[in-house]
């Protein structure tokens, strides 16, 4: 009797944990924490490296900055193919920075390599999340873009719960705090949550943003219901949103 129930719960646990939405949630949690760690480590690196090559960190991104720092002979900078090559050359010609001893240089080089490795793993995880969403939820991938789709699943807790949400809840996903505050004190309610970062919305003016956010949320809700049946209706939905945007702009 006990063995039977044990077997049933074992199967249920495995079934729940092997769903792809749970994998997406776990991976996205790792990515968020990794980004924080990378920022923290680069600040530590800049304490020393900024004295050596001042104000270059404002020109280059984190990844390029690490590659530039690891280059031994700085006169061969053209091998890295940066866009900002001439600006960097000017700063190097001024010759303001101090020279650093060899043993300290070894430490900073190691730190630099660690940061590059962390960035590499983060990019790999991002790719994996992308493919997981594209394989399983094609409508969500096309309409909401992978980053917002991943965030939506994370807030809802699972894909099953997200697919049951109405459009109005999807529109305000991520703005729960200000929404309940507005209800409590009878003030204006928010019009969009994490949809704010959507490429179709972010360039519009404030009033238009609210209108498009509503129609976009309704289309996402439709697409989610099609995703449960694994049908691809994303092309129609995207066309409808684009016509709506052109109507409003006139």
């Amino acid at each position: 009797m006990k063995q039977e129930i044990l077997q049933i719960t074992k199967n249920k646990v495995k079934e729940k944990l092997e769903k792809s939405d749970q994998k997406i949630i776990n991976l996205s949690l790792i990515v968020e924490k990794l980004q924080l760690k990378i920022n923290e480590l680069t600040e530590l690196l800049k304490i020393i490296s900024d004295q050596e090559y001042p104000s270059i960190d404002q020109i280059l991104g984190i990844k390029d900055y690490c590659k530039f720092y690891l280059l031994e002979d700085k006169s061969q900078i053209s091998t890295l193919n940066f866009k900002e090559e001439e600006e960097i050359k000017k700063i190097l010609d001024y010759n303001i920075g101090i020279t650093i001893e060899k043993d300290v240089k070894e430490i900073t080089n190691k730190l630099c390599k660690n940061i590059l490795e962390l960035i590499d793993t983060k990019e790999k995880i991002d790719l994996k999340i992308d493919t997981l969403i594209k394989e399983n939820y094609i409508n969500l991938y096309n309409i909401a873009t992978p980053k917002i789709a991943c965030k939506m699943i994370e807030i809802a807790g699972s894909f099953e719960r997200l697919s049951r949400y109405p459009a109005s809840t999807i529109q305000l996903l991520g703005s729960e705090k200000s929404f309940f505050k507005a209800l409590k004190f009878n003030k204006k309610t928010p019009k969009y949550g994490i949809l704010y970062n959507h490429p179709l919305i972010i360039n519009l003016t404030n009033k238009k943003k609210a209108k498009i956010a509503r129609s976009l949320a309704s289309k996402i809700a439709l697409g989610l219901k099609a995703d449960v049946e694994k049908k691809d209706i994303s092309k129609d939905l995207i066309n409808k949103i684009k016509t709506k945007i052109s109507e409003i702009n006139e």
């Binding site: 129930i5 044990l6 719960t9 646990v13």
Partner: peptide
Amino acid sequence: SPYSMQKLLILAEKTENIIPIL
């Protein structure tokens, strides 16, 4: 929660009179 159920399952294998259900 399936995560905490995994740990409860290990405990249930050791002892005789615990029966876990998800």
